[in-house]
Simulated scan of single mutants.
Amino acid sequence: MKFSMCTAVYGMNDLQDTINRAAKIGFDGVEITTAFHLPVGSSKEYRKTVKSWIEDAGLECSGLHYIFDGSVKLATPDRNLNQKCEEYLEKVIDVAADVNARTVIIGSGGATRHIDDGVDRLEATKCMADVIHKAGKYAAEKNVVLAVEAINRYETNFLNTMKEATEFAQMVDHPSVRTMADTYHMNIEEVVPEEEVRKYGHMLANLHLADSNRHAPGTGHFDFKAVAKALKEIGFEQYCSFEVFGLYPWKLWFDSVEEADRQMKIGIAHAHAAFDNL
């Protein structure tokens, strides 16, 4: 199993330093937090520089996450907003291609994905599926996969479970559009997470690892060994990325890079123990 680290773990720390820390701790790749570190407005030259930092550290760019900046709406029947969202996704895909990222994670809670009150839910779903199908065609040209993430009910009212994300990806109906799961969200939404992996894991393009407290694996009560066993049974060979947050009221990341280092060291040791001894 290959493990990647989301750069958001280190907040707004210098990106090159964060990449080098990931390599030193023992990760195989980094997942770039787009909104923080590589926005769609970034220059081609800067993207080339970031790509060189990743390669010089001996890592891969496993994907992009936290791709939305609040300027677009995902689930809406408004055709003008649909067009704007499609154009934005194409820009994100361009960023991914420029840093050789294999996956773009379509996550996002809050207003971006929320289906507003009074909106026809089926029509909004169909429109979002159409937008992502078109983006999937563009992604295929760039050798990028889009992964629609299942996110818990407290962050969005749309696509909360692996089943729902899988059914939506099937509605999109494009080979470059798959799904994404996160053990933190699974802990909330799935009754028996490993069984859902067995049922719907065939569509996974990536898996986020975070414990029940959203800190590093090994600091909460989530059963990573059970999920690791299920992933092995279905032949999952994609990246598992550490999306771990501090969850303070005023910010997401930890108080210091040293605390982030400590979390990552605990997490990767626990992940190896769960995945490598099957």
Rank of each mutant, 00 (worst) to 15 (best):
M1W: 06
M5K: 06
V9F: 03
M12W: 12
N13K: 14
D14G: 13
I19G: 04
N20M: 15
N20S: 15
N20P: 13
A23P: 10
G29D: 03
F36L: 14
G41M: 01
G41T: 08
S42A: 12
Y46M: 05
R47V: 00
R47K: 14
T49E: 13
V50E: 02
K51T: 01
S52F: 02
C61M: 02
S62K: 07
S62E: 02
S62Y: 04
G63F: 00
L64A: 00
H65Y: 10
Y66M: 08
D69S: 02
L74D: 03
A75K: 04
P77W: 11
D78I: 04
N82H: 12
N82R: 15
N82D: 14
Q83H: 14
C85N: 08
C85W: 01
L89H: 02
I93W: 02
A96D: 00
A97K: 08
D98T: 02
R102F: 03
S108W: 04
S108T: 06
G110I: 01
A111Y: 13
D117F: 13
R121F: 08
L122K: 15
E123W: 05
D130T: 15
V131G: 02
H133N: 14
H133L: 06
G136Y: 01
A139C: 11
N143D: 10
N143G: 06
A147L: 06
V148Y: 09
E149K: 00
I151P: 11
N152L: 08
R153G: 06
E155Q: 13
T156I: 14
N157C: 09
N160R: 02
N160W: 02
T161G: 09
M162T: 13
K163I: 12
A165W: 03
T166F: 07
Q170I: 11
M171R: 12
M171F: 15
D173N: 15
D173L: 10
P175Y: 05
S176G: 13
V177E: 11
R178T: 03
H185E: 07
N187H: 11
N187W: 08
N187G: 07
E189Q: 14
E189I: 08
E190H: 10
E190D: 09
V191C: 14
V192G: 12
E194K: 10
E195V: 11
R198V: 12
H208Y: 10
A210N: 04
D211G: 11
D211S: 10
N213Y: 03
N213V: 08
R214Y: 11
R214H: 13
P217W: 09
G218Q: 04
F224S: 03
F224Q: 05
K225Y: 12
K225G: 10
K225D: 09
V227C: 07
A228Y: 10
K229E: 13
L231G: 08
E233F: 14
F236Q: 09
Q238T: 10
Y239H: 13
V244H: 07
V244W: 07
V244L: 15
F245P: 00
L247S: 15
P249M: 06
K251A: 12
L252D: 08
L252K: 11
F254G: 05
V257L: 04
E259P: 06
Q263T: 04
I266H: 07
G267N: 06
H270G: 03
A271T: 03
H272L: 01
H272I: 02
A273C: 11
